[in-house]
């Protein structure tokens, strides 16, 4: 993964807020993964246009300039290996 790539949700998965779980979840055939708070915030940034770099920037702005780069990259590569997301470019 490089920072100019654009991650997007794979067609095989759904991402949504679940009130009863009080968290974001990834849904797939007959299954569900509950995301942690930060994982949910990262997934929320995937709009099919934002690059990895801009996602990091957005989240840093959102969390008072915190250094989130490593966490974002670690989560996105895990999400990719789970098949949840794909990279364009």
């Amino acid at each position: 993964m490089n920072k100019d790539q654009i991650p997007s949700l794979s067609q095989m998965f759904r991402f949504q807020w679940e009130e009863a779980q009080n968290s974001y979840v990834i849904l797939y055939p007959e299954g569900m993964v509950k995301l942690s708070g930060s994982a949910g915030e990262i997934m929320k940034q995937l709009d099919g246009e934002a690059t990895v770099a801009s996602i990091i920037q957005n989240l840093s702005d959102l969390f008072d300039g915190a250094d989130v780069g490593d966490d974002v990259i670690a989560f996105l590569s895990e999400a990719e290996s789970n098949g949840w997301i794909e990279f364009k470019q």
Binding site: E18, E19, A20, Q21, V25, L27, E30, G31, M32
Partner: peptide, 8 residues
């Protein structure tokens, strides 16, 4: 309403 998510 109760929180069911997966429906078969």
């Amino acid at each position: 309403k109760m929180g069911a998510t997966q429906l078969g």
